[in-house]
Design a protein around this nucleic acid. Structure first.
Lengths: 146, 146
DNA sequence: CTTATTTCAGAGTATTTAGTCTTAATTGGT
DNA sequence: ACCAATTAAGACTAAATACTCTGAAATAAG
C-alpha cells in the first residue's frame, strides 16, 4: 500500500529530517524520536541502527548517547536515503511489469512513464534534508513531530 | 519493492491487454493466458476470478469456456484496472508518510509530488486498453506474449 | 566500581502479499 | 447419459514486510 517508498523508508526520512533540525553534533535518543515522530520504538531502533551501518548516522551508547547525522545535512539528499533503504529499482522497471520493456521494445506507456520517472528522480536529488528541514521550520508549517 | 502497482495489478493489466487483442467476445482460457504471459496458473486464475466479480471480465465454464472482456476495450482505462485491484490510495497520500500533510500543512515535497501525481493520474485515465493493445500490435513491438 | 541509560544484535511474532493445491460446479461435444 | 475441459471456491503454504522482545555491551556520572 505504501505509495512508492516502504514504510521503513518513510520513517527513515522523517527521522533524518528531525535530526537535521538539531544543532550540529547534538545527540538525540530513540526515545525522543519515537515520541515526537510517533514511530514504534523498537522498529525505529532497527531502522536507525541500519542507517548507522550505512554511515548516514553516527551513534553513541550510554547516557547522553543517541544519534546524530553522519554527514552535513546539506550533503544528504532524499535520493541517498531512498537508495540506502529501499534501493533504486524504480529507476529501471516497467510500470506494467513487462520484463522485456525497453527503448527498442517499449510497453504502451513506456515513454510517458519515462518522463514521470525523471521527475521523481529530479525531486529526489534536488532536495537535501537541510533545505527541507529549514522549510519545515517556517511558522506556517506545523511539523508532524510536535 | 513493487514500483507503484502490486504484482497482482500488473498481471491483471497484462491479461486484460492480451484479451483486448482478441476478436470481440471470443473466450480465452487461463491455460493460454498463463502460457503466453508467463504468470503462475493458479494465481492468475484467482486474479481473473476477481476481475470477473468486478465485472471487468466475463467468464464461462466448460469446454470452449474461458474469459473475455466484460465491456468494450475502449471503455477500460488503466485507471479502472488499478482502481479495481489496488485501490487509489496513491491519489491522496504523502510521499514522506506524514499523516497531517495537506495544502495548509505541506511537507517539503508536497507541491513537487502533487504535480507528479497528476501526471500519473493523467497517464492512467488517458490510456484505454484498446489503444494500448493496438500499439502493441505494431511490428516493431515484440509483445510480452509471443 | 557501581549504576542508570542508552545503543546493538539477534531472535521472535504479526500481517500482508504472493502463490499453490484440491475439490466441486458448469457446460459443450459425442 | 457421459466425458472431458474449463472456471469457482476455499483452504493452504511461502515469502516479504512490519513490528516486538530480550539480553548484552558501552559509557557517562556519582
Amino acid at each position: 500500500m505504501g505509495l512508492i517508498f516502504s514504510r521503513q523508508c518513510e520513517y527513515a526520512l522523517q527521522a533524518l529530517l528531525y535530526l537535521a533540525l538539531k544543532p550540529n553534533g547534538q545527540m538525540t535518543s530513540i526515545k525522543e524520536l519515537t515520541k515526537r515522530l510517533n514511530i514504534p520504538y523498537h522498529f525505529l531502533a532497527k531502522i536507525l541502527q541500519d542507517l548507522a551501518h550505512k554511515e548516514l548516522l553516527h551513534s553513541l551508547k550510554g547516557p547522553t548517547g543517541g544519534f546524530s547525522l553522519g554527514m552535513p545535512a546539506q550533503d544528504i539528499t532524499l535520493f541517498h536515503v531512498v537508495e540506502a533503504v529501499d534501493g533504486i529499482g524504480f529507476t529501471n522497471s516497467c510500470v506494467l511489469g513487462f520484463k522485456e520493456c525497453s527503448e527498442r521494445n517499449p510497453c504502451a506507456v513506456h515513454e510517458k512513464w519515462g518522463s514521470i520517472r525523471e521527475s521523481v528522480y529530479d525531486m529526489l536529488v534536488s532536495k537535501n534534508i537541510a533545505q527541507m528541514a529549514r522549510e519545515m521550520k517556517k511558522p506556517e508549517y506545523k511539523p508532524p513531530f510536535e
